[in-house]
């Protein structure tokens, strides 16, 4: 019973998210999941801050169709992304690949964390030194 209920709830959830789109029929749940995941990760280039799943632009409609057909014909996710990158460039990917011009993007947060850590450490050291210097006088 519980299983059925949660299944129903999940179904309702998906309906609310994809309610605006053309009905697509998939051979398997696995294909449906792949399609959903891909369209969430691919950018609609007309309305550049929306993904393919959200956008109602004609281009998004056409690209969803391309993705749908490629999922149906059994192409893997890498092939599908490659198809779109060959035509629209890396910008179509919401998750940019790690390459020469994106190192700063990927490693930037880590550098900031290390930098912040160093500042914090020197701060603590200074304050500890101050406290240590104060104490013997008491």
């Amino acid at each position: 019973m519980k299983m059925k209920l949660s299944g129903l709830l999940i179904l309702l959830l998906t309906f609310s998210v994809y309610a605006q789109q053309e009905p697509l029929v998939f051979e398997s749940q696995q294909q449906q999941d792949r399609f959903d995941k891909l369209t969430l990760e691919l950018r609609c280039l007309v309305c550049q801050n929306q993904n393919l799943a959200d956008s109602d632009a004609p281009l998004a409609h056409d690209l969803r169709r391309e993705v749908y057909e490629m999922v149906q014909s059994g192409q893997n996710n890498e092939d599908i992304k490659k198809f779109l990158v060959e035509r629209y460039g890396d910008f179509v990917l919401y998750r940019p690949p790690v390459q020469n011009n994106t190192y700063l993007l990927w490693l930037g947060p880590l550098l900031l964390l290390i930098g912040g850590g160093l500042v914090l450490r020197s701060n603590i050291k200074q304050r500890t030194a101050l406290i240590d210097a104060d104490e013997p006088e008491k």
Binding site: L45, P58, D62
Partner: peptide, 12 residues
């Protein structure tokens, strides 16, 4: 059906 435009990477 805009397939050629997709092949050309046309988005505008």
């Amino acid at each position: 059906d805009a397939r050629t435009s997709v092949d050309f990477g046309v988005y505008a």
